[in-house]
Each structure stands twice: as structure tokens, then as C-alpha cells.
Amino acid sequence: MATKAVCVLKGDGPVQGIINFEQKESNGPVKVWGSIKGLTEGLHGFHVHEFGDNTAGCTSAGPHFNPLSRKHGGPKDEERHVGDLGNVTADKDGVADVSIEDSVISLSGDHCIIGRTLVVHEKADDLGKGGNEESTKTGNAGSRLACGVIGIAQ
């Protein structure tokens, strides 16, 4: 089992970053940390998408990683996509320092995120509470600013 993974985020604009993942036990939580720069100040949706395909930019990554066919939600919700990591918060300089621990994603097994795409979005994720159909699919997080395929790390 891989215990570490990394993702280099890039987009068409100024947004870029490096996100690290570490899972010490196969059924334990995954620590997610790193930094994203070039964002507007505020909240930005942060999700693992189904495919590791960036051939047409971030759009070819498909929908959120959702092997259990659930509705979109927040990272602490029972009803959520596996890939729903909530929001990252950018400061006035456009930098989001990421520090998350998640017990639904994994670096092995059915919820493995390796080979899938991590995406940072234009807007805040409403965590499935926006009151419309799009909220239950995407959290109304808007366009995909930057993305990268999650790969095994040393």
C-alpha cells in the first residue's frame, strides 16, 4: 500500500500549488496538507474528481469521485461524495494553506484517490446545502481553477 501521495495543481491562470497526502494505516485517516497560491481571497471548493484525465484541462477530470452514488455534502457529513473535501481558505495575498484530515478518502482500496484528479474551484462549496439540484452534485463551487493528478510519492 502506498502511504504517501502528492498532487501538483496547475491551471490556465495564476492558480498553482502542491498538496501532499499521507496515510499511516490502511483504514486510518489521510492527512492532506500543502499550499495553493494565486486564488482570490475567501473560500474555494476542494474536491477529488473521478478521473485522472487532464487532456482537456480540468474539465476532463469528470464529476466528483463518488463510488457510493451519494449526494454532495461537506467533509463531516454522512451523506457526501468520497471526493468531497470541503473548502480551502485563501488569505488576502491569495494563498491557501491547506491542513485537512479526512477519514473517507484513502490511498488504497475502494476509496483510493491515487490516479484521480484534485481540483480547486472558483467559488465556495455550499456543502450540499444550497437548496438546488446543482448543490447536491457540485456544491455550486463554480469553474475549475486548477487541477492535477494525484500520484504515489516516496
Rank of each mutant, 00 (worst) to 15 (best):
S135L: 03
V149F: 03
V88N: 02
L118S: 00
D77Y: 08
S35H: 11
A61K: 12
G142K: 06
E25W: 02
T136M: 10
L43Q: 05
Q23P: 04
S60R: 10
I100D: 04
E22T: 08
E50M: 03
G139D: 05
D97I: 05
T136Y: 02
K37R: 11
K37E: 15
A56E: 11
V32T: 02
A153D: 14
S35L: 13
P29S: 14
V95T: 13
S106L: 05
E133L: 12
R70Q: 12
E78S: 12
A124F: 13
G139L: 06
K123V: 08
A5M: 00
I150Y: 02
G86W: 11
D77I: 05
G57W: 09
D77A: 12
T59I: 08
G148I: 02
V32Y: 03
G139H: 04
N66M: 03
T117Y: 15
V119K: 02
D93T: 10
P14L: 09
D126E: 07
D102K: 01
K10W: 05
G38S: 03
N54P: 11
I152A: 05
N27K: 05
Q23F: 00
E25R: 04
V95N: 15
V6D: 09
K92E: 08
G11H: 00
Q23L: 00
A124V: 09
E79T: 14
G38W: 00
G139M: 01
E122I: 01
N20M: 15
V8C: 14
G83E: 07
A2W: 05
T3W: 05
G34C: 03
T138P: 15
D84F: 06
D77C: 07
V6E: 10
I36R: 00
G11M: 00
G130F: 06
A2S: 11
C147Q: 15
S103D: 09
D91R: 03
N140A: 10
A146Y: 02
F46I: 09
T40W: 03
G13N: 10
R80V: 05
V120R: 03
H47I: 01
F21A: 03
T138D: 09
A141K: 07
K31Q: 04
G83T: 14
H44I: 00
V6M: 00
F65P: 05
P75K: 01
